[in-house]
Design a protein around this nucleic acid. Structure first.
Length: 584
RNA sequence: GCCCCCGUAGCUCAGCGGAUAGAGCGGCCGCCUUCUAAGCGGAAGGUCGCAGGUUCGAACCCUGCCGGGGGCGCCA
């Protein structure tokens, strides 16, 4: 049950490929028709023939191969474009085949099921999560859901910072507080306070600093008592993360935590293997690999340092160990790193070294899915009014509060009490707004965090799309029937009104949108699609009556279209990790 | 100094080789006897940073420049 565009592509592509191997129809939505294929111009150039003539030949062959049954208008236009308008009967036929769930709605299920590991940059243990961690969890979560929807086998790994020198001072601070009181503070209070206290002590108290350094040595040498305290700290952090992640509505849980400490025992082997492969170079006492093509500010080769001159392993070593573990033990075909853009060069180097070492090979690859910063409404780094970092938990609370306030304002304005679960809806709308604002623009750009805009019910926002879905649900509540797509899909008649036709078309393009979203690791493409679908539905809703229309067949047909729309809206929002309340 | 990203309507952003550059917001004009007006329609608004080049065709590719952000050996 592919999307309309891939359906057309399936007919056209073989003809293009036959004329010029590798040539593509270059299909895209068109203002003059439903779709247009621009590829004939390329083919004509390669063949040295007249473009319109080539386009006509392609079109004729396509018509014989099934295009005729799909289109009620198919013509060559302009310099050699092929314009295609689908027949209403064809649209009805496709609607009839819609079923709930990924494949039934048109998700392009991949021919090869890949084992995909998604690495979320991960917060540091013993520190509070803040807006900086928002993006990797939100984007990562959306990618995981989309990759799974198209049939991949996805493993989440939350690569938290749970190891390193910081833990010396943290463990000592825990000792000073006393284990019981410390544990209580960690569980109840926020981690930031604990971390700051330890940090302050470390900076002002020389003897404490000395103990902290000694503690690091104990930790690294595997001292059981120290490890137990370390574990306490990490567990407390993970418990906090769990709470935030759950509230944010991302799938990450403690089960997905694979922190730096996990790779610790493998680092020695990583370095040994790099040495054995002849890749390791000693430079000023540090052990490095020099992947070609990277230079430092003096123009000299830039090293990837895996072990510093003090003998400590760096995060490059950890990243390499993680790649090795994922491809060799887990059997990953693809590793996706959802980490900020500033690390671009680091990952390029790590991937290059992993390939040199053979940990990434012909059958496995890694991609860095980078993202920009979160900026405040003023265009500068997002901060509290006091200039501190914004805590995630407080941000989420504010989102829910603001959403609730908007809902209350509305009920006062209309005089209609909200009959649903106010708290739950407020959470769905508030959290959804945050996530959608993050996901709806190209992830590689910085994005501006603006409460009023993201919570607006107008424009490309989560509330607007959720509202369209709620209206669908409202229709079915009044109709007194369930929005059962399986039962209703077959009742769709060939659409007659423009708004019906456009809506039907958009519903049937879900698979195309998901496809391009997954291919580019770009959730914003799915967002753009859902916005188009929601606005298409709203236009339909304004123009076409559903419940009080005659004859009964038309009513049933429109209900079927509503059911399909509601299903795709809810499913699509679900892929973004956003809830679709039935009432708003 | 070198490398990467960004510069599209007043604002926030899509588009990234194809036919007159698209949305949303804001401003202006309309639309609630009717399934949630938290909505819809309309008109206005752009030398796609600048200058060259490649191409039948460039916002999109190449070169240079200007402006903004980031990175560039022992933190992660």
């Amino acid at each position: 049950m592919p999307g309309l565009m891939s359906l057309l592509d399936a007919v056209l592509a073989p003809i293009f490929d036959d004329l010029v191997p590798g040539a593509s129809p270059a299909l895209r939505p068109s203002q003059r028709a439903d779709f247009q294929a621009d590829g004939a111009l390329q083919v004509a150039r390669a063949l040295g023939r007249a473009p319109r003539e080539v386009a006509q030949e392609i079109l004729s062959r396509a018509m014989e191969r099934g295009l005729e049954q799909m289109c009620d208008r198919a013509e060559v236009a302009g310099p050699g474009f092929i314009n295609l308008r689908l027949s209403a009967g064809m649209l009805a036929g496709r609607l009839a085949r819609l079923r709930p769930g990924a494949e039934g709605l048109g998700a392009p299920v991949q021919r090869r099921r890949l084992k995909v590991v998604v690495d979320y940059g991960g917060p540091n243990a013993a520190k509070q999560m803040h807006v900086g961690h928002l993006r990797s969890s939100i984007i990562g979560d959306a990618l995981v859901r989309a990759l799974r929807a198209v049939g991949h086998d996805v493993v989440r790994e939350n690569h938290i910072g749970d190891w390193g020198a910081n833990f010396g001072m943290l463990v000592e601070h825990l000792c000073d507080l006393g284990e019981d009181r410390g544990a209580e503070e960690l569980a109840m209070g926020d981690l930031e306070t604990f971390y700051q206290a330890a940090r302050a002590q470390y900076e002002t108290d020389a003897s404490f600093a000395e103990r902290a350094r000694a503690r690091v040595v104990l930790l690294q040498s595997g001292d059981p008592a120290t490890l137990r305290l370390w574990r306490l700290l990490v567990d407390a952090s993970v418990a906090h993360f769990d709470r935030d992640f759950q509230r944010l509505g991302v799938e990450l849980t403690r089960e997905d935590v694979v922190g730096e400490s996990f790779y610790n025992p493998m680092l020695e082997d990583v370095v040994t293997e790099l040495a054995a492969a002849g890749l390791l170079v000693d430079s000023d006492g540090a052990r490095c690999v020099f992947p070609p093509g990277h230079t430092n500010r003096e123009g000299a080769p830039l090293p990837l340092i895996v072990q510093n001159s003090a003998g400590g392993f760096t995060y490059a070593a950890t990243d390499l160990a993680a790649i090795k573990d994922r491809t060799q033990r887990i059997g990953a075909d693809l590793i996706v790193y959802v980490v900020g853009l500033p690390q671009t060069e680091h990952f390029k180097m790590v991937f290059a070294v992993a390939r040199m070492a053979g940990w990434l090979g012909p059958s496995s690859e890694a991609v860095h899915v980078g993202f920009g910063n979160v900026l405040g409404p003023d265009g500068k780094m997002f901060r509290t009014r006091q200039g501190g970092t914004v805590k995630l938990s407080e941000l989420l609370q504010e989102a829910e509060d603001r959403a609730r306030a908007l809902m209350i304002a509305r009920t006062e304005q209309t005089g209609q009490p909200l009959d649903g679960d106010m708290a739950r809806t407020a959470a769905a709308v508030g959290i959804g707004a945050i996530k959608y604002a993050d996901l709806s623009t190209d992830r590689t750009r910085d994005y501006r965090f603006d409460w009023d805009r993201m919570l607006s019910f107008d424009g490309n926002t989560a509330p607007y799309i959720q509202y369209a879905h709620a209206r669908v649900c409202s229709i079915f509540r009044r109709a007194g029937t369930a929005a059962d797509l399986t039962a209703m899909a077959g009742r769709a008649l060939p659409p007659e009104e423009d708004e019906e036709r456009e809506l039907a078309k958009t519903v049937l393009c879900f698979g195309d949108a998901l496809q391009s979203s997954v291919e580019s690791y770009g959730p914003h493409k799915l967002c753009a699609y859902l916005f188009e679908l929601a606005s298409g539905f709203t236009r339909f809703y304004e123009k076409c009556r559903v419940l009080d229309v005659a004859p009964a067949e038309l009513r049933a047909s429109r209900l079927a279209l509503c059911a399909a729309t509601g299903e795709v809206l809810a499913y699509g929002l679900g892929l973004l990790g956003i809830e679709a309340p039935e009432r708003m």
